[in-house]
Amino acid sequence: MLAVLRWLSRRPLSTLHRIGAALGWLVWAVSPTYRRRLRENAAQAGIAAADRRQAVAQAGRMTAELPWLWLRPADRPLGEAVRWDGDAHLQAALDAGTGVLLLTPHLGCWEVCAQAIAERWGDRSTLTAMYRPARQDWLRELEETARARPGLATVPASLAGVRQLLRALRRGEMVGVLPDQVPPEGMGTWAPFFGREAYTMTLATKLARQSGAALLLIWAERLPQGAGFRLRVAPAPALPQPAAGATEEAQSRADATALNGWMEALVRQSPGQYLWGYHRYKQPRGAAPAAAAPTSTGGPA
């Protein structure tokens, strides 16, 4: 398997994206569970049929580009494969020295965000990203090796990992989190996402509140015909002000609702590149089911 991945890593990105588009449709054809989940999640958000079809191919491209990203030599920069939009926001946040918390959903190529940031700013600040190790030994080893790059550090999705993220922010460094990833039981709260209750992590907003770090939104748009990626950076809106007498649970839900709203706004910029097949609405083992609560209706794309 590694030999195949190494061979793929040497192919042009445009070739990998063509292979990936075919792979995406192959998975769609053979997996009824995947088809149902993608359709249901996209329909919940009011996503147009054309964007749903695009999402099938884009999910395959995401998989096919991983060898190119993971096995690319550390001394071979991304260079012109990355174009920046809003990078001044990240530069200003680093200059402020209060730490930078970067949030990106499962949109476009989130793997390239960390590498591009580490290449450009790693000489002045390490970027620490949280990840969930793969179950297969060979894949876990590949992930760890691929992500061990200058200016880039990773921590596991555990209490120890959370402590390392907080320490990094308090040192004035950068931290990256995928806030639309379903957290383990006890590390999230139910909040609406595209009009349906989704178990949402509380880590991101707690880190922001406890550290005072700058909060930025970032995502990498996959450009047509393997032309590379456009990284978009924007300041996050302000977190909700704590309500007088609000319980910790109520405040967590308010923060999670705001967080999901930010992610929705990013996804609507390019709905065809969101990972609609991700099991976003699952109930984590041990977590209580979502209580009945008023929800908003996802509007059209």
Rank of each mutant, 00 (worst) to 15 (best):
D255T: 04
P184V: 11
V112D: 08
V233L: 15
T63W: 14
E249A: 15
V177F: 00
A43W: 03
G108V: 04
R72Q: 06
M130I: 14
R268C: 09
A29P: 00
E221K: 15
L5R: 07
T15S: 15
S14I: 10
I117A: 05
P294D: 03
T128P: 03
S296T: 08
A146Y: 10
R53W: 13
D95K: 15
L152A: 09
R147A: 06
R232C: 11
H89M: 09
D51T: 01
G226A: 12
A291M: 03
R18W: 02
W84T: 13
W190H: 07
R222S: 00
A153F: 00
L275Y: 10
P156H: 09
G151H: 04
S252M: 08
G272W: 02
G151Q: 06
W276E: 03
A22F: 03
G108N: 06
K282F: 00
Y274K: 13
T189Y: 02
P240C: 10
A153H: 11
G99K: 10
E80R: 15
E197D: 07
Y199C: 01
G299T: 13
L2Q: 14
T15G: 12
F229R: 09
L94C: 11
R37C: 02
G277H: 12
L216K: 06
K206S: 05
S9T: 06
A114N: 15
A3Y: 09
G195A: 05
R10C: 09
A81D: 09
